[in-house]
């Protein structure tokens, strides 16, 4: 892959690649290492990029890179970063804003504590907006598996929301 092609196909999706890697690793430094390795692999495997869906292709490489690194070491189990600093919704009054921030923090922590299989389908669907078919390709599982993982992941997250709702309004 020429440098120009790398800049055209990979660099535009670097944020997405990092976001995905960050949710997989739950650690900034490790996510950076994963993305860096993935980019080197992307160049080596440039021939495997079919069509123009460079983003899904890059996700697949990021995922494989993370998996092979996680197998090679125990570093995949990284401490959770402290959640916080979420932007407040300006349309809400201060009390509502605080509540909203708490809910966002709580849900983010809930996603981080999901098993990796569930976590990644949530991230790819909700944050990256991939279709079921695209997720199936990235994660390399049948469509039905994507759907069941997504449904179960949402059930868990909704349970967290429900618990929080009950705390606020007993």
């Amino acid at each position: 892959m020429s440098r120009q092609r790398f800049e055209e196909t990979v660099l535009p999706h670097l944020d997405a690649a990092f976001n995905y890697a960050r949710w997989l690793t739950r650690n900034d430094a490790e996510a950076e290492d994963v993305v860096q390795d993935a980019c080197v692999r992307a160049i080596r495997f440039a021939a495997s990029l079919r069509g123009d869906d460079a983003r899904s292709w890059l996700f697949t490489i990021v995922r494989n890179t993370w998996y092979s690194r996680a197998r090679g070491s125990q570093r995949a189990i990284a401490p959770l970063d402290a959640a916080g600093g979420e932007p407040a919704d300006e349309a809400l009054d201060p009390e509502e804003q605080l509540l909203q921030q708490q809910r966002v923090s709580r849900i983010r922590a809930a996603v981080e504590s999901l098993p990796a299989d569930f976590r990644e389908v949530i991230v790819l669907r909700e944050l990256e907006g991939l279709s079921y078919k695209e997720i199936a390709a990235v994660v390399d599982v049948p469509l039905g598996t994507v759907m069941s993982r997504l449904a179960r992941a949402r059930e868990r997250l909704l349970a967290v929301l429900e618990a929080q709702r009950r705390e606020v309004m007993p």
Binding site: V10, L11, F18, N19, E32, Q100, R108, V111
Partner: peptide, 18 residues
């Protein structure tokens, strides 16, 4: 709520390293 959580963007340093 999920989309309100901050998006992890690649740092300039990472972009350069890559």
């Amino acid at each position: 709520l999920l989309q309100a959580a901050p998006y992890f963007a690649a740092s300039d340093r990472l972009r350069e390293r890559v």
